[in-house]
């Protein structure tokens, strides 16, 4: 189980690196979406490791509230792009 967790942390490093090194905003959004999913799965794993289901409930709630904020942000960025390109 510990090995699984370590492998997950390694996998988590990839999108973090990508979010840091890329300047394009959509590539950053992709990386953040990936980070969000990976961390919430990690929360589930940790809750099983520690045998504490309160942590697991938090993970499931994060998953089911989901990436709503990221979707909202994507729409805001799109709207900003539209405005700055075409004029109001």
């Amino acid at each position: 189980m510990n090995i699984v967790l370590i492998a997950m942390i390694l996998a988590l490093l990839i999108p973090i690196y990508e979010a840091w090194q890329d300047d394009d905003v959509w590539q950053k959004m992709l990386a953040f979406a990936s980070i969000a999913t990976k961390t919430s799965i990690m929360i589930l794993i940790v809750s099983i490791l520690r045998d504490d289901w309160m942590i697991g409930v938090v993970g499931v709630i994060i998953l089911s509230v989901g990436n709503a904020a990221l979707m909202l942000l994507a729409h805001v960025i799109k709207r900003l792009n539209d405005v700055s390109r075409g004029g109001l």
């Binding site: 959509w26 998953l63 990221l70 979707m71």
Partner: peptide, 19 residues
């Protein structure tokens, strides 16, 4: 968790692609 994972990730993929 399974259901919400499937739905939210797919919808996020669509929204990101669209935007």
């Amino acid at each position: 968790a399974l259901i919400s994972l499937a739905i939210w990730n797919t919808v996020l993929g669509y929204v990101l692609a669209y935007c």
